[in-house]
Simulated assay, not measured.
Amino acid sequence: MNLPASVSDLLPPHAQDVYRAAFNHVFAAHARRSPTWIKGLRSVAWPESASE
Rank of each mutant, 00 (worst) to 15 (best):
H25M: 11
F27E: 07
V18Y: 03
R33F: 13
Y19C: 00
E48C: 02
V18P: 01
A21P: 01
S43K: 11
S49A: 09
R20P: 01
N2C: 05
D9E: 08
K39L: 07
L11Y: 15
V7E: 03
R42C: 02
I38Y: 05
A45Q: 03
G40C: 05
F27N: 05
F23A: 00
N24H: 06
P13I: 14
Q16I: 03
D17Y: 09
D17W: 11
R20Q: 13
P4C: 04
P4F: 06
L11K: 10
I38Q: 07
S43I: 02
P12N: 10
E48N: 06
A21Q: 08
F27A: 09
A21V: 04
L3H: 09
S51L: 13
A5S: 07
W46E: 01
S6L: 05
A31L: 15
L3Y: 11
I38P: 00
H30R: 13
A22L: 14
E52R: 07
A45K: 01
K39S: 13
S8Q: 11
R33V: 08
H30I: 14
S51F: 15
H30N: 15
D17H: 11
H25D: 12
S8G: 04
S49H: 00
M1P: 04
M1H: 06
S43C: 11
Y19D: 00
Y19E: 00
N24F: 06
A45E: 02
E52Q: 09
A5F: 11
A5V: 10
Q16N: 03
R42L: 05
S43D: 07
D17R: 12
D9P: 02
W37G: 01
A22D: 01
M1S: 09
F27M: 05
A31F: 14
G40W: 14
H14G: 04
S8R: 12
Q16K: 08
H25R: 06
A29C: 13
M1I: 07
H25V: 10
A21K: 04
L3S: 03
M1C: 08
L41C: 04
E48S: 06
P12D: 12
P12Y: 15
L10T: 15
A21S: 14
F27Q: 08
F27V: 03
S49R: 00
